[in-house]
Simulated scan of single mutants.
Amino acid sequence: MIDPAEQALAFTQEQPADADAIEALLDHAFGPARFVKSSERVREFAEFRPEMSFCAWDQGRLVGSVRMWKVHVGGTPAIFLGPLAVRAEGRKFGTGGELVARACAAARAAGYPVLLVGDEPYFGRFGFAAAPCKGVRMPGPVDQRRVLACGADVLAGPVTA
């Protein structure tokens, strides 16, 4: 369990050896329902970008993860953020926010806007908004109000590889 008085999480870029721990975390956080989401359709064809994906570790135990994927929205190259998962005991200490901030900084440094499906009240503090995404077409049903982007004035077109 994360002790707020001693919280000294280690944030690292995702490594191949992290895959099993990340899958276990995602199963714990989302269960099998994660496989039916439109975001999962994107991850099926997108190019995984481990150099922009991060893990949070507490004394050798994975407590959080964010993954990034290269896509195109219409003709515009972009990075698709997700999934973001944090164990319950780490949520109130800003672990998810730190993971998002690191991932978005890596995407910005590489010159990409970032796209995701999520809650604007949470992701808005990182500069995400629904307004630039009105013309984005996800591969499958999605609540268009939850399609968010940062680092782009307008994104339009289908999300593709």
Rank of each mutant, 00 (worst) to 15 (best):
S65E: 13
S65R: 07
S65W: 06
S65A: 15
S65Q: 08
V66N: 08
M68K: 02
W69P: 00
K70D: 06
K70N: 02
K70Q: 13
K70E: 07
V71Q: 08
V71T: 09
H72I: 10
H72R: 14
H72T: 12
V73T: 11
V73F: 04
V73D: 10
G74D: 13
G74Y: 11
T76E: 15
T76Y: 07
A78D: 12
A78Y: 12
I79N: 00
I79L: 12
I79G: 02
L81G: 04
G82D: 00
G82H: 00
P83S: 13
P83F: 13
P83Y: 08
A85V: 10
A85T: 09
A85L: 06
V86E: 01
E89D: 13
G90E: 04
R91F: 05
K92E: 14
K92H: 03
K92W: 10
F93L: 15
F93M: 11
G94E: 09
G94K: 07
G94P: 10
G94V: 06
T95H: 10
E98A: 08
E98W: 02
E98I: 07
L99K: 02
L99N: 14
V100R: 04
V100F: 00
V100N: 04
V100L: 02
V100T: 10
V100Q: 01
A103K: 02
A105G: 08
